[in-house]
Design a protein around this nucleic acid. Sequence first.
DNA 1: TTGTACGCGTTATCAA
DNA 2: TTGATAACGCGTACAA
Lengths: 347, 347
Amino acid sequence: MTDSRNTIVDVARAAGVHPSTVSRVLNGRPDLSLRAETRARVVAAAERLGYRPSAVARSLRLRRTLTLGMLVPDIANPFFPPIIKGAESAASERGYNLILCNTEDSSEREATYLRVLRERQVDGLLIASSFMADSTIARLRREQFPFVLLNRVARGGADLAVLVDNRAAAGRVIAHLVDLGHRRIGLVAGPQTTTTGVERLAGARAAIRRRGLDDGDELTVVAEAFSEEAGYRAARRLLVDGVRPTAIFGANDLIAFGVLRAAREAGLGVPSDLSLAGFNDILPAALIEPPLTTIHVPQREMGDRAARLLVAALEGEEIPQGKVILDAELIVRGSTAAPSMVVRRIA
Amino acid sequence: MTDSRNTIVDVARAAGVHPSTVSRVLNGRPDLSLRAETRARVVAAAERLGYRPSAVARSLRLRRTLTLGMLVPDIANPFFPPIIKGAESAASERGYNLILCNTEDSSEREATYLRVLRERQVDGLLIASSFMADSTIARLRREQFPFVLLNRVARGGADLAVLVDNRAAAGRVIAHLVDLGHRRIGLVAGPQTTTTGVERLAGARAAIRRRGLDDGDELTVVAEAFSEEAGYRAARRLLVDGVRPTAIFGANDLIAFGVLRAAREAGLGVPSDLSLAGFNDILPAALIEPPLTTIHVPQREMGDRAARLLVAALEGEEIPQGKVILDAELIVRGSTAAPSMVVRRIA
DNA sequence: TTGTACGCGTTATCAA
DNA sequence: TTGATAACGCGTACAA
């Protein structure tokens, strides 16, 4: 009876009407003229049979699936879950579902997923995968397939995107460290194959140069990934030197966590011997010891705005601004301190 | 030319054959008799047109979507991402995709998602949502809808499930603490509306009783959720007492993190004044200071096995065992120590 | 070896 | 106000 395999035809038969009438009753606009009695009969029959419309059949007919695809590099990276939640909830509010794809920073997986998602006729894409080749993006653009970029940009395009100003934010970190009296600031940059990696490094270096400080290569290392492990390995190259910095800015929080581990291993106290700052303000940043000074990126809002932007584009709504730049504020916590303290303790 | 909106009819026209022939070439079993020349022409045409079959149309025809739905309470909880990755990768290996749904422990959201997923005709469900009402599970059972339970069980069913032995593992934690000399062991239990919450508490209490120690209510508090914040609040109720425990077992790692925060606030050193153990071995457990003693749950394997089980059921394969019990080993780290040390330090 | 015919479950359009 | 019809894109039993 309450079998889900009932179709619209079964409901129609049960209600003694034509299938098209059932369709009208169940999804027609409210201004459609339908006899109240008919409507009631249909609703009752649908209820009784536990009728569940087939989204597959509807998608075929409507040529849209009310589904968005979302490409994310790594859901185990705490940066992404809040973004995903924001996107999911905004999409859901507008009647869209999300298919989440974990690309693992593999271009092969990206390509596979892209194909699968398009075969599944998703209506649009949310792309948070920073490694995705610009050429892939260019192709989407060429095919006029709707998409929104998240926390990244692509060469040569006025794409819809939700971003933070990485350069300015990195500059804010440097300003904070310099204000504390630091003069030798080490940088553990992110992969230079990503726009976030490039922009944060550029922003930090510019700010350092602007203040007439050393921005030489001996104070910069590039991590192979935005991960704790990569940050750890990179930091070891920075900390063995005789000319080690008094402060380090990691290109994201995970990298900063890795730096912290390397510092501990090297017998350096944070912040007593070394100040440390990160970027993103992921949840654990406030929980570790010492809590991490970092740039707060409003992740949930990021996902929310991106999904809204995409849905607006899909529904043909007016789009006020193609690029949304979110505020990214500096959060000062225990991991940064003045280098004078270092001297005092060493003395 | 390379327009994705090309259908099988376009390919057929381009290759000078009938659409059904295209279908056969592209997905027919290899033993189908097809002229090599025809096959080549079709493949070439499909290639040239950038043909991408419509998964929607195929699903409608085949009455299956090659899609699994996965219900998860909270993807921001580090316990779940590795499970999701494992499930996703195993599913993908068998040609299935995953639609991920974040239930936020809300039964309303669970119900909505369940409806949406079934409207979308997912072929089966992976259910990691511990709050989902047994009645909902019972209904799936009644309707013979394929599903696998992850890290939970439901009343009255021989459902397919992938589990750890919570009782035994909790017992192992207690054994470790007792071996260290602890006699007053506090328990911060998880919500008693979840099977994991109930089982871990029961297992711990049984182990305590078995050793003739105090398992009274004054040493047990129940957290409202499996979260850091809930653990913190619960621990405060446990630590203000004059009769405070020398060791605490948190029902999961997040709860243990909350206990750690409460202990710090109360001026208690871990492990010097208080030993602390958790459950799950999520990634941050090894990274915090001090690293957390905990039960290692093989999350990735859990997802992997669950997806394999579900796919096997869907494909009508032989299923060796309906319930898979995974090993959950105790990992001893810095957060646990002998209470004698406590005395020494206090003295 | 390939073509024909049909139906999967909907909904938009037209007719009544 | 409702019914009839066609079509969305594909796969398969059957015919040729």
